[in-house]
């Protein structure tokens, strides 16, 4: 099968790879970029395990071809931890037992990252509606809801603790 050169920018780093047109972004991230944090569950848009952020938007990476993402900013779960320090979302998931096997976790983290970092004022109903995008087959959703709620609050506190001049 014919492969075509492709330049991707993932988590701020350039990746020069060669893939077929038919290869999804999810498979390319895992197999060609070596970023196996993005998980592949259903491969047809239902489970959300493959959720990544492209150009600031949470999308299903199994429903995008890698060649469509050329020149775009792609963020995966590997971008969350910075120099050994976990993202507030990751801390909150650990704290509130929002994962057991962890298969769905990268997808959930990338699904809500934007809302958390923008400090969105989500009602309980809106938060549940957003989280209904993704499936978790073993933890159940209550702890995930709690963790995301806590992360939103912590993120806001941290942001307001930074002195104006340093922002």
């Amino acid at each position: 099968m014919e492969r075509h050169p492709l330049n991707l920018t993932v988590n701020g780093k350039p990746y020069a790879v060669e893939t077929e047109f038919r290869k999804t972004l999810a498979d390319t991230l895992r197999e060609d970029c070596g970023l196996t944090g993005t998980h592949v569950g259903c491969e047809h848009g239902v489970c959300g395990a493959c959720t990544v952020v492209v150009e600031g938007k949470a999308v299903r990476s199994c429903l995008m071809f890698a060649h469509q993402a050329e020149g775009m900013e792609i963020e995966t779960v590997e971008s969350l931890e910075k120099e050994g320090e976990l993202h507030v979302l990751q801390e909150a998931f650990a704290e509130h037992h929002a994962l057991q096997c962890g298969f769905c976790t990268p997808g959930f983290l990338m699904l809500v990252k934007g809302a958390v970092e923008r400090g969105e004022e989500l009602s309980d109903a809106e938060l549940r509606h957003l989280l209904s995008s993704n499936l978790c087959r073993c933890t159940g959703y209550q702890n995930i809801i709690r963790a995301v709620r806590a992360a939103i609050d912590t993120f806001k506190e941290k942001a307001s603790a930074v002195p104006e001049a340093a922002r």
């Binding site: 848009g45 959300g48 938007k57 949470a58 299903r60 995008m64 957003l130 995008s133």
Partner: peptide, 12 residues
């Protein structure tokens, strides 16, 4: 619009 699929699908 909120009845169509889920948020990440609505982004595309």
């Amino acid at each position: 619009v909120h009845h169509i699929a889920h948020h990440p699908i609505r982004e595309r």
